[in-house]
Amino acid sequence: MSSDASKAWLDLLDWRREASALYARVRDELPRDPGAAHQHWQTGRNALFKHHAQSPLDAAARASFTQLPCWPYEPALAFTARVDVAVPQERLTVASSTGQAMPLVRFGSVVLPIGTLDVYWIDVYGGGVFLPFRDATSGGQSYGGGRYLLDTAKSADLGRTASGELVLDFNFAFHPSCFYDPRWSCPLAPPQNVLSGPVRAGERAF
């Protein structure tokens, strides 16, 4: 293995540390001041995209990058919900942006005022809770392959309430890395996780 390849693994480790620290700050501030937590999230992601060696942006894109487009914070799209684990578990594979298969286990669902979404476990080493979705903005104002609300394998986790409900705030929805550069392979939102209405919150395409 070349020294460049070895450095890339260490850079990825550092990216995950930085992302974990960012979400820890967000989880701490979100109950007290959601708007400020959202601003910290944007500022932190902008810094990672602009400066980090593992940025989804290539060098040319980083040179001109200023910030990730986001909708203004919308309190009406911030929810908490208990995961219904009574639904039958289902093993499935979803396509990634590069055509590779990603194994998932549907282990629950959440019922939200804007629709019902399945909650998945990424069924590979390390795993992680995964909640992708598409909505009426997908393919226009946001990526056609969907956005991610939770991806705990990447530290994207808003936490849970004292009563055990997941914090599901769509203002923190983000695009997978493949939206910014096709060299990245990212699982796409399954057909059953499509919301009928537009979710104008979180990161947008423009």
Rank of each mutant, 00 (worst) to 15 (best):
D28K: 14
Q100M: 14
D169Y: 01
D33K: 10
P75K: 09
L22K: 06
G139N: 08
T137N: 07
R32Q: 12
S163W: 04
A173D: 01
M1I: 15
P103F: 07
W41C: 00
G140D: 07
T137Q: 06
R147M: 01
C186Y: 04
T80E: 05
L149V: 00
G126D: 11
T66W: 02
R106A: 11
P56Y: 10
S20Y: 07
T80P: 00
H52Y: 09
R160I: 07
V94R: 02
D151V: 05
V199G: 04
L195G: 00
Q141I: 04
D181R: 12
A86S: 15
T161C: 11
V110D: 03
L10P: 04
G127V: 08
L92R: 05
W184G: 07
L131I: 13
E74L: 05
A61F: 03
S196N: 14
H175T: 00
P75R: 01
Q141T: 03
G202P: 05
R134E: 00
P31W: 01
S20A: 15
S2T: 15
G145H: 00
G108A: 02
L117R: 08
A61G: 08
Q100S: 15
N193E: 06
Q89S: 13
A95K: 14
F172Y: 11
G144P: 06
R25L: 12
G159E: 07
G127L: 09
K7Q: 14
A136L: 02
D118S: 13
H38C: 06
V26Y: 05
D169H: 00
S196V: 10
F206A: 15
Q141S: 11
R91P: 08
Y180K: 03
H40R: 15
R134F: 03
P72E: 03
A24E: 13
P187V: 03
Y73R: 07
L104V: 05
A86E: 13
G159K: 00
S138K: 06
E90Y: 06
H40D: 14
S96D: 08
W184S: 01
P198L: 07
E203H: 05
L68G: 07
L131G: 10
P75T: 03
L188A: 05
A153S: 14
Y120K: 02
L22R: 04
T43A: 15
D33W: 10
